[in-house]
Design a protein around this nucleic acid. Structure first.
Lengths: 315, 315
DNA sequence: AGGGCACACGATCACGTTACCAAGCGGGGC
DNA sequence: GCCCCGCTTGGTAACGTGATCGTGTGCCCT
């Protein structure tokens, strides 16, 4: 008990004894065992479980950074996992997180609406914040991006530039975010009395496939004059394809791109670019703040949904 | 005990009983408590502690992804922390990791050579792999990047292009990696009988300060004709500055950049660019493999150091 | 019938920690 | 001198789990 007291502040332990205890601890390499501590105390573990769909995407790096910042301020650590958009991997992670007694979860649900969160097993047992995507049937705090509004604004900007034939790059069957952006895209076309040519819908998910799709599209007959790209990965591919096209066909009008998500250096490329951007780090921080508010009991019992603003910039 | 047996495979439990146990578990939302399990078993926790210096840098996102991949293959999870190059934050993280009984550590030591790893407290108690930077006095598995060789090759390429006045962008006092790259840079100059003008050493650490430095340098008298940039952050700043410079001074020779680390889309910018690149994801995966080899007892007792190759590309 | 054996299941304890309680000691007020 | 109080210190139990062992049951072989 004297050791325990010493290690946790030393209240009611003679200073001289504390010195001896600490010296012995140093010499033996003793460190309090958090696992044991947690079993005894049923005290929070100080861990937050975070699951993202693609850790390698700089977007989620910034997102994780935002969470880490806020977590550190609150004396918590983050346990991070990568779902690769795979629901079964998501389930593994959630089970593991639950077993490790994390205090709360911040999850970017895996694609397809097949997220296992819908089953509500984990959900009910601990605070959860969903990020960037909602899941049907799950009532929890959620931080979304204004996908529809952003897509409307970006698409409208394209139309105002005279584009009436716009292709869409994104996996609307697999990724809910892409679906909502498609919604905004479509309603902006509608609002201006333009239809969408279904043959210009390219279901791509990464930079390479987007590059192929755009190159093919520009090489076909009656090519679009602009591309709507749903995320930073597809934008990189589209930019490369358009850049190649410009090089190979000097003098021709350069196709425009509207990109959801910013891409570093894209503003220097001299490709007509409309960026619908938001700050993933702020999004992560917001999600973390909501989680900690709930943990502290400062949140209303009703789940809250916050939508992060999307700004449109032209390059 | 019947519950315990059921939850861990169900050996020697009647199927009918197993069904009842699982039903009850589902209904109660019961999940085995990992903390308790760990105390009882002194069994590994399945956790790997990872500390990086800047989670927001896409470089470390890829690095973490490489670790996560290998960790998942080995049934482990990663606990990730951001040191922000701050040794005291590094200490906090390491103490916390140790207390949580992580099985091993993969650490990018915080800058300044002040990494607390030098004190050897944590080091001795569990397997450790250092990544990208070594720490004086610490004998452990290490995965480095061929900083010196890469810098020599990149610098030599610049010289072969006719550049003799090259500025250096990087924080050589704060970041060991920058120091080694500076070493290679210098020895390449030496080898060709060129000296380095100390006034062209810019101690910058992020994109903004690099942009300022390059802009100032190009605006001064007797400006350099090329810049050696130590990492992807400083390269982004340098590219922007050079790009602005080209726009404002059309017709003038465009300054060249040699960049350690690749930057997405930089190849499209029409700025003479030499990239000394390596794959951070492979680096992370390598570090993780070394750690798991050691955990499995398959590693020689002598610490190993692996150097990841650096390739030079021209754009 | 008796012995042996495989299987099913629960009682007990230990893992490292801390809450709680009890005991010892010294000082101050009466 | 006595009592009470506060500080210090250690004994004990309990957190949720699983290893070990003992007990009970049913089956097969002789």
């Amino acid at each position: 008990m004297t050791v325990s007291r010493t290690m946790s502040g030393g209240r009611n332990v003679r200073p001289e004894v504390q010195v001896r205890v600490r010296a012995a601890a140093d010499q033996l390499g003793y460190r309090p065992n958090q696992s044991a501590r947690n079993t005894r105390l049923r005290r929070p573990t100080g861990l937050i479980g975070v699951a993202v769909t693609n850790l390698g995407n700089p977007y989620y790096g910034q997102f994780a950074l935002g969470i880490e910042d806020v977590a550190a301020q609150n004396g918590r650590h983050i346990l991070i996992g990568n779902t690769r958009e795979d629901p079964s991997r998501e389930r593994e992670l959630l089970d593991d997180f639950a077993g490790r007694q994390v205090e709360g979860l911040i999850i970017v649900p895996a694609g397809n609406g097949l997220s296992v969160l819908g089953e509500g097993q984990v959900t009910s047992s601990m605070p959860l914040v969903l990020a960037t995507r909602a899941v049907q049937g799950v009532r929890s705090d959620t931080v979304l991006v204004d996908d529809v509004g952003g897509a409307v604004a970006g698409t409208t900007a394209l139309i105002d530039d005279g584009h009436s034939r716009v292709a869409f790059l994104g996996d609307i069957s697999g990724i809910p975010t892409a679906r909502r952006r498609f919604e905004g895209f479509n309603s902006a076309l509608d609002a201006r009395g333009l239809g969408f040519d279904e043959s210009l819908l390219y279901s791509v998910r990464d930079a390479d496939s987007a590059l192929q799709a755009v190159a093919g599209s520009l090489g076909g007959h009656n090519p679009p004059t602009a591309f709507f790209s749903t995320n930073n990965r597809t934008t990189v591919g589209a930019l490369r394809a358009v850049w190649n096209h410009r090089r190979n066909h000097p003098g021709l009008e350069v196709p425009a791109i509207a990109s959801f998500d910013d891409v570093e250096l894209a503003d220097l490329l001299d490709v007509p670019l409309t960026v619908m951007s938001h700050d993933p780090r702020a999004l992560g921080a917001q999600a973390a703040r909501m989680l900690f508010e709930r943990l502290a009991g400062d949140a209303p019992s009703e789940p809250r949904t916050i939508s992060m603003p999307v700004t449109v910039q032209r390059y």
